[in-house]
Amino acid sequence: MKSGAPNEQSPVLSVRDLCTVFGTRAGDVHAVNSVNFELSAGEILGVVGESGSGKTVTMMSMLRLLPSPPANVKAGTVHFEGRDLLQATDKELRRIRGGRIGFIFQDPMTSLNPVFSVGFQLRESLRRHLGMSRKAASKRSVELLEMVGIPDAESRLSAFPHQFSGGMRQRVMIAIALACDPSVLIADEPTTALDVTIQAQILELIRDLRRDLGMAIIWITHDLGVIAGIANRVLVMYAGQIVEHARVEDLFANPSHPYTRALISTVPAVRGHRAKRLNSIEGQAPTLLGMPNSCPFESRCSSAFARCAQEAPHRMQVGSSHDAACFLVENASHVATN
């Protein structure tokens, strides 16, 4: 690292033109299409989108965690700590996975290995990345379990995952992800499989840990409520593309992409008038076979016009750190400038 104080603006992680394709019998599925984003130190970046929108595949592609074949990260760069992760050797990559970038996954029931004790699975990371002795690793494991709020941590070290509740298991996962003090934590729908009260506890825990440890977090979810509560900035993904990017307050105050607007309208109101039917976005997400040459949301969009079917919109500036991939935005800014 070069000298100089850590700059708030310099990103820890920057992704450029990331493209991932899955080879299938029916043809290539373009799961991630030219994704660009940056992650600043200490921020929480929310990533929302419906199932199959490419949220998880994007994150997995960055660290080459997808099985290949069928997955193929075709293009792009992922800059992290002075190197491109897509060009890094397997050895370098292994040092970063779990060491500099931690992961939490959706389902804590299946994400932990059922036949090894929690202590074993914690020590494994510590010994691998920090070269700790078994004893030191055990000691650190107890601290980590205490940090994530597991009572009676010392005796729980020899317990197996099935002896923990869902929320406790997710806490164990968090402890493993944070074991080596990473600068980035990627949380892939960490609260989706948990019930609402546990979900709130986990959110609280992550917020506290970020305050104390200062890592940057990428938080993948399809729950806009969670995003509103935790994120600083938000990426909205649809059909393997980022369709809108904004600070969280701007996103809810001024959603600029029709998809984002539709997504927000599907959230049922808790207060006030209760809707008879839940809102939904009509139609199906595109299959992503073949390269997109139109706006992927065109078929479901209420404000689509002729141009939407002919070319794909690029991300266009809406305001400061706010952009959306929609021709309406372009027209609106034209009107504004004229």
Binding site: R94, R97, G102, F103, F105, N113, E124, I176
Partner: peptide, 9 residues
């Protein structure tokens, strides 16, 4: 859990 193990490096 295999994905978890890989993500641990």
């Amino acid at each position: 859990f295999v994905r978890t193990a890989r993500s641990k490096g």
